[in-house]
């Protein structure tokens, strides 16, 4: 398989509310990514976008961005899911030798509508949606399963949320102490407001290019997975789907999953218990730096989330002293992590 270089990245936000229109906001991320990659629109062979029509309040929501992502008279595919899944598809296009340079772009604006109301429309409309269940309730049910056998879970999650919030630089996440988090209002017990990643607006763009790894970080492995929809059909203590996605990505990267070591992990954690599920599913241990920028707890845009972690990993690998290191990037969507995606990024020479 040929090498896929991450040639450039761009992101806007996350911010609580981006007052720009969706195309203007997306253009911001695309322009940054193209400038970072030092290429023009003419060098892009294909575009893969990620957006969710119901989140945008637009049907075929990529219509709104086709022009600003530069896809007029070019191939474009829209993945309705997390941007990291779109990245997986963009990588497939390059490995397929269909295209050499692929622009991957994800966007969402949670300021447009209450996300908790919209995610009800992702739930089984026969058995679940009429109850009013949404992704937050699913997270509460999953967290509770974990907390049942673990008296210290809530305190630990509060501490983790506190640390991640403190590391954030986006300005979105309010810095809260552990006790403030434990005293914050219940959202979906045992989860509390202070444990929820603050939702906002943003867009991310990444340029993937066939080439050598001489020029910087390389996308060396990808994997994704879908679990059963019903929470009662799954063992909620484990993100089995993430383990499968991780194993697939390791196989692509020629790493034995059990021995794979990562210098950096960028999990997508909408809640602190998801970080523990991530560690358990991937076997990552103490030797790995995790979310040095606070991760999603410092500001979170659904759909963009996993791709924002890819951008974070890319920037970390580019920092002085981190060349040649390896990062694990994670995204998920659906109730209680039903759909999972991972990417392995190796720092360049």
């Amino acid at each position: 398989m040929r090498t896929i270089r991450i040639a450039g990245v761009g992101e806007t936000g996350p911010v609580q509310q981006d007052r720009r229109s969706i195309p203007e906001m997306v253009l911001g991320a695309v322009d940054l990514a193209l400038a970072d990659a030092q290429i023009g629109h003419g060098e892009i062979d294909s575009v893969v976008t990620a957006s969710v029509d119901l989140f945008d309040g637009l049907t075929a929501s990529n219509i709104a961005v086709t022009e600003v992502v530069g896809a007029v008279m070019k191939p474009e595919a829209r993945i309705a899911g997390d941007g990291l899944a779109a990245t997986v598809h963009g990588a497939c296009q390059i490995w397929a030798h269909a295209y050499d340079t692929v622009l991957v772009v994800a966007h969402a604006k949670t300021s447009m509508a209450a996300n908790g109301k919209l995610t009800q429309w992702a739930m089984d409309p026969i058995h679940l949606q009429p109850l009013g269940v949404n992704f937050s309730a699913a997270a509460g049910l999953q967290a509770n399963v974990l907390a049942q056998h673990d008296r210290h879970a809530e305190k630990r999650w509060a501490r983790l949320s506190c640390e991640r919030r403190a590391a954030g630089t986006s300005g979105m996440a309010k810095k809260l102490s552990q006790s403030e988090i434990l005293a914050s209002e219940i959202t979906t017990s045992p989860l509390r407001n202070g444990m929820c990643a603050p939702l906002g607006d943003g867009a991310c763009a990444v340029v993937l290019q066939a080439g050598s790894n001489a020029g910087g970080p390389v996308l060396s492995g990808v994997g994704h997975d879908l679990e059963a929809h019903g929470l009662g059909d799954r063992n909620l203590v484990h993100w089995a789907g993430l383990t499968r996605a991780f194993d697939r990505a390791c196989r692509v990267a020629n790493l034995p999953p059990a021995d794979a070591r990562f210098d950096l992990a960028e999990p997508s954690c909408f809640y602190p218990h998801e970080e523990e599920l991530f560690l358990r599913a991937t076997g990552i241990d103490g030797g790995t730096v995790i979310s040095p920028d606070g991760g999603l707890m410092a500001g979170c845009v659904p759909v963009v989330a996993g791709m924002s972690r890819l951008v974070a990993a890319f920037k970390w690998l580019r920092q002085t002293g981190n060349a040649g290191k390896r990062a694990l990037v994670h995204g998920h969507w659906g109730p209680a992590g039903q759909a999972q995606a991972v990417a392995i990024v190796d720092g360049g020479l």
Binding site: V52, L54, G81, A122, P125, D225, H229, G241, R244, W333
Partner: peptide, 21 residues
């Protein structure tokens, strides 16, 4: 629907497999 693969995916034998919409 939002993210229809979540409910419908298992109809396409997608459980435990890579799936995107």
């Amino acid at each position: 629907r939002a993210l229809p693969e979540l409910w419908v995916g298992e109809g396409a034998f997608a459980n435990g497999k890579p799936c995107m919409k």
